[in-house]
Amino acid sequence: QGEKVEGLQAQALYPWRAKKDNHLNFNKNDVITVLEQQDMWWFGEVQGQKGWFPKSYVKLISG
C-alpha cells in the first residue's frame, strides 16, 4: 500500500506513455499533482486524468 500525500506537485522530465490502462500519460514539463507514492511508482493527476507513472520521470517542485 502506498503513502497518500497532499499538496505535492512534480514536473515531468520526460514524456511518458501509458503501458497499461491504469497508467498516466504526460508530456515533458507537464505539472502533475502527486496523490500517492510507492517505491518506484507514483499515482497522480494531470489534465483531469489519473494514473500511475514511474517516479524517475519527474522531479518534485513543491511539498
Rank of each mutant, 00 (worst) to 15 (best):
Q1W: 04
Q1T: 10
Q1G: 11
Q1F: 05
Q1M: 07
Q1S: 04
Q1K: 03
G2E: 13
G2I: 07
G2D: 06
G2R: 04
G2C: 05
E3F: 08
E3I: 15
E3Y: 15
E3S: 05
E3A: 05
E3G: 08
E3R: 11
E3C: 09
E3W: 04
K4S: 13
K4V: 08
K4Y: 13
K4G: 02
K4H: 08
V5G: 09
V5T: 07
V5C: 03
V5S: 10
V5H: 02
V5D: 15
E6I: 05
E6Y: 10
E6M: 11
E6R: 10
E6A: 09
G7S: 14
G7R: 07
G7E: 15
G7Q: 15
L8W: 09
L8Q: 14
L8N: 12
L8M: 15
L8E: 13
L8A: 14
Q9H: 14
Q9C: 10
Q9A: 11
Q9K: 13
Q9T: 11
Q9W: 10
Q9S: 11
Q9L: 09
Q9M: 15
Q9E: 14
A10R: 01
A10V: 15
A10M: 07
A10T: 01
A10S: 03
Q11K: 09
Q11T: 10
Q11M: 10
Q11R: 12
Q11E: 05
Q11A: 06
A12L: 00
A12S: 02
A12V: 02
L13N: 13
L13M: 07
L13A: 06
L13C: 06
L13I: 04
L13Q: 07
Y14E: 14
Y14N: 12
Y14R: 12
P15T: 12
P15Y: 06
P15A: 14
P15R: 13
P15I: 09
P15M: 15
P15C: 12
W16M: 05
W16G: 01
W16Y: 05
W16C: 09
W16S: 12
R17Q: 12
R17F: 09
R17K: 04
R17G: 05
R17A: 08
A18F: 06
A18E: 07
A18D: 10
A18R: 06
A18S: 12
A18P: 13
A18N: 11
A18I: 07
K19W: 10
K19F: 14
K19Y: 11
K19N: 12
K19R: 13
K20P: 04
K20M: 12
K20S: 13
K20E: 12
K20H: 09
K20Q: 08
K20Y: 09
D21I: 09
D21W: 10
N22L: 05
N22F: 10
N22R: 09
N22E: 11
N22T: 14
H23F: 10
H23T: 07
H23A: 06
H23P: 02
L24C: 07
L24D: 00
L24T: 02
L24K: 00
L24R: 02
L24W: 01
L24V: 08
N25P: 03
N25V: 07
N25H: 14
N25T: 05
N25D: 12
N25M: 11
N25W: 03
N25K: 15
F26I: 11
F26T: 01
F26M: 14
F26P: 00
F26Q: 00
F26C: 01
N27T: 05
N27Q: 09
N27M: 13
N27K: 08
N27V: 15
N27S: 04
N27H: 02
N27A: 10
K28L: 03
K28A: 06
K28Q: 07
K28I: 02
K28G: 07
K28N: 02
K28E: 08
K28H: 06
K28F: 03
N29H: 15
N29R: 08
N29C: 08
N29D: 11
N29M: 13
N29E: 13
N29Y: 05
N29L: 06
N29A: 10
D30E: 11
D30M: 06
D30Q: 13
D30A: 08
D30F: 01
D30K: 01
D30C: 08
D30R: 01
V31C: 11
V31M: 14
V31S: 07
V31T: 13
V31R: 13
V31F: 13
V31E: 08
I32G: 02
T33P: 00
T33R: 13
V34I: 15
V34H: 05
V34C: 03
V34M: 01
V34E: 02
V34L: 04
V34S: 03
V34G: 03
V34P: 02
L35W: 15
L35S: 10
L35F: 05
E36Y: 05
E36F: 03
E36Q: 04
E36R: 09
E36C: 13
E36W: 10
E36M: 08
Q37I: 05
Q37C: 09
Q37T: 12
Q37F: 11
Q37L: 06
Q37E: 08
Q37W: 08
Q38N: 03
Q38L: 12
Q38M: 12
Q38P: 05
Q38S: 09
D39R: 08
D39P: 05
D39G: 13
D39V: 05
M40E: 14
M40R: 09
M40K: 15
M40Q: 14
M40S: 14
M40T: 10
M40G: 10
W41H: 04
W41Q: 05
W41G: 01
W41E: 02
W41C: 05
W42C: 12
W42F: 12
W42R: 01
W42G: 01
W42E: 01
W42A: 06
F43G: 02
F43L: 13
F43A: 02
F43C: 02
F43E: 03
G44W: 00
G44T: 02
G44N: 00
G44L: 00
E45Y: 14
E45P: 00
E45W: 06
E45D: 07
E45G: 06
E45M: 08
E45H: 15
V46G: 07
V46K: 12
V46T: 09
Q47T: 13
Q47E: 14
Q47L: 06
Q47C: 04
Q47D: 03
Q47N: 11
G48T: 03
G48S: 09
G48N: 06
G48K: 12
G48W: 00
G48H: 04
G48R: 07
Q49R: 13
Q49M: 12
Q49F: 01
Q49K: 03
Q49A: 11
Q49T: 05
Q49E: 15
K50E: 12
K50L: 04
K50W: 06
K50R: 15
K50G: 08
K50Q: 05
K50S: 09
K50M: 08
K50V: 06
K50D: 06
K50I: 07
G51S: 00
W52R: 00
F53A: 00
F53E: 01
F53S: 00
F53G: 02
F53T: 00
F53M: 03
F53L: 02
P54C: 01
P54E: 03
P54W: 03
P54D: 01
P54F: 01
P54V: 03
P54K: 04
P54M: 06
P54A: 02
P54H: 03
K55S: 15
K55D: 13
K55M: 03
S56H: 15
S56G: 09
S56V: 10
S56M: 06
S56T: 13
S56Y: 07
S56N: 05
Y57D: 04
Y57A: 15
Y57R: 13
Y57I: 05
Y57H: 06
V58I: 03
V58M: 00
V58T: 04
V58C: 08
V58D: 01
V58F: 01
K59F: 04
K59Q: 10
K59G: 03
K59M: 10
K59H: 07
L60Y: 05
L60R: 10
L60F: 03
L60A: 08
L60G: 08
L60I: 06
L60P: 09
L60Q: 14
I61Y: 07
I61H: 03
I61G: 07
I61K: 11
I61P: 11
I61S: 05
S62K: 09
S62L: 11
S62M: 11
S62T: 07
G63F: 04
G63R: 13
G63M: 14
G63V: 09
